[in-house]
Write a protein that binds this DNA or RNA. Structure first.
Lengths: 361, 361
DNA sequence: TTGTAAGCGTTATCAC
DNA sequence: GTGATAACGCTTACAA
């Protein structure tokens, strides 16, 4: 067995002390309630648990004291004594400002609510250090499970061995080098279908616009290449741009690509920002370019000209992930093989406001 | 003093028992770590608190045991013993799917992160019962403070007397019949400015489209009326429609209003859904109608024809609310007069892609 | 029907 | 330097 050098604490939550708060009038305890009602704390506990053995008269006195004092049971103390979790689930997302993640969070919240679980939410801004901090902090708070949209390629802090018996489900991006549950979109299939739609529309020269360095955009690029290869079509690398993070840079890239001497006649855009940028350029240049894009957005159905959108149910993604996590939490043996769910996408054709939808296999 | 009838528990959190979870291998405790390192739990605690008095040799043995066992301090137990809050803040919003609230949440999260506070998030779907449940639950979890977008007009469950010493800040909607802190937008001013822009553009017959029964939409209607009255303009009540919850119904309302024999020449829309609906109708009917709308949205600057948008910084709203709450949490005396912050809006004129912005006072 | 004692995991206090 | 003890607020087990 390899000796392990004495390492510093892997557990950063020890580093920072809780910020000092001014002394606040402390909430009433069961003993306070009992004192007021002339009974012991135990009897108060029984009343709150609706124990039928308590005398109705005592019960009423206790309830009145509860009411007068505005007493609330301390859930922290309760779950410490009882064990078995805090009733909270942690969700770590990369960017709440992105509707994708807020809809995901909504789906998660609604599914958790069914089991009376509460959501602790953290935003990483794609910062892996912040992700590590949040995961560690949530684990220290004894959340019952963890949902994470992993920010980077280093995921060891999310592995089963690091998190011990704390169940994790990755959302929207799959595990890398670790084996945990995940729920992802069919990025490849969606991109393939959208590209095929362009091909079926008669296009041969098709370009690709996408954001940089995300797992999903790589998958979508792969789907694009697959569809092109399936149709024996050549992909000019000059038509492939993968550095656009926002609408402005997408516009710039689209302008460049469409201004080339041998320009593509259609573009596949790997996310909504690139689709919007490409649309603006098409509109400005009055060029006859077909567009297909990943991610639905408001106004997609108002756009003039050939357009197809790969859409999906983000809330459902959140619900499925939460459900999968809850299932895991209910299992005695958490070491069974990791599960993976791939959610289908839908291709919507918005050409000239005459819209039709086709399910993707 | 009036006798109070023996009431049932006002505290609904007693009602439901935590869902039973299968026994999970319990995380290591300080005693476990101590046992492995040949010291007491106390020494482990000291090491994790970086107490300089511990012998370096012992310290290393402890840290190694921590590492080997994957030990994490139980924050629940810690905050129980130490007192002074859980390090969490509760945020209750009405609809996370609405970008307004997700951006709000993002602002809150980022401000809380500065003080190493964690966010517990609940969604009400405008359901007051759910709001009550969430507030009660969060209070039982001993959150250090509460941020709420109140769903209804009954807010007694948010009053200082109900929540005892737990600080609350209302977001986006003001307190009604209770006195607590709040951060709101200048809805009246924004609507007044937008309407005035239409008037200054030469319009005399101006209609109003808005969603139903929200405090904000009432305020925006008020601003609209104020601007019209200021200019001695008559508001035809047939041009005022306040029941549109989505783009589809907004389209229907806009169609009706614009098809009247004496139709308005301009519309003020109280939210983005109504603006989008009105825009679609203007486009479809090829009518020469000026639009002004509350709420910025993607694509606003791509729209052709006269359009002005009242925009604002939603994240800033969240940050300000969180900061106000944190300030309150730090005060020994929480009974000082409630504070109210009104955030300004900005009017952006997107007429013909030649855009200019004017600060609203 | 109600109360007492012990302990969940951590830390403040005092003893060694 | 380190350990024993008690206590945070609550609940399980047992005694009355």
């Amino acid at each position: 067995m390899g000796e392990m050098e004495a390492a510093g604490p892997t557990n950063e939550s020890f580093e920072r002390l809780t910020v000092e708060r001014k002394g606040r009038a402390k909430p009433a305890t069961m003993r306070d309630v009992g004192a007021r009602a002339g009974v012991s704390a135990m009897t108060v506990s029984r009343v709150l648990h609706k124990d039928p053995r308590v005398l109705p008269l005592t019960r009423d006195r206790v309830l009145e004291a509860v009411d007068k004092l505005g007493y609330r049971r301390n859930e922290l103390a309760r779950s410490l004594r009882v064990g078995g979790g805090s009733g909270m689930v942690g969700l770590v997302v990369t960017n709440l400002a992105n509707p994708f993640y807020s809809q995901l969070a909504l789906g998660v919240e609604s599914e958790l609510a069914k089991d009376n679980l509460k959501l602790v939410l953290g935003n990483t801004g794609e910062d892996v250090d912040r992700e590590r901090h949040l995961v560690s902090d949530f684990a220290s708070r004894r959340v019952d499970g963890l949902l994470v949209v992993p920010a980077g390629n280093r995921q060891t802090h999310l592995s089963a061995s690091t998190l011990k018996s704390l169940p994790v489900v990755l959302c929207a991006r799959p595990p890398i080098d670790i084996s945990v549950d995940c729920v992802v979109l069919d990025d490849v299939g969606g991109a393939r279908n959208a590209t095929r739609w362009l091909i079926d529309s008669g296009h041969r020269r098709i370009g690709f616009l996408g954001p940089p360095a995300q797992w999903t955009s790589a998958e979508r690029l792969r789907g694009f290449h697959e569809a092109m290869a399936d149709a024996d079509l050549y992909v000019n690398e000059k038509w492939v741009r993968c550095t656009q993070r926002d609408v402005a840079s997408a516009e710039a890239a689209a302008t460049e690509v469409l201004s080339m001497s041998e320009a593509p006649t259609a573009l596949f855009c790997a996310n909504s920002r690139n689709t919007i940028g490409a649309y603006r350029v098409r509109r400005k240049l009055s060029r006859d370019v077909s567009l297909a894009g990943f991610d639905d957005f408001e106004f997609a159905d108002t756009i003039e000209g050939p357009l197809a959108i790969v859409s999906y149910d983000t809330e459902e993604l959140g619900r499925r992930a939460a459900r999968m996590l809850i299932d895991r939490m209910g299992e005695a043996d958490k070491t069974t093989a990791p599960r993976r769910v791939v959610l289908p996408t839908t291709l919507c054709n918005f050409d000239h406001s005459k819209q039709s939808a086709a399910e993707v296999p």
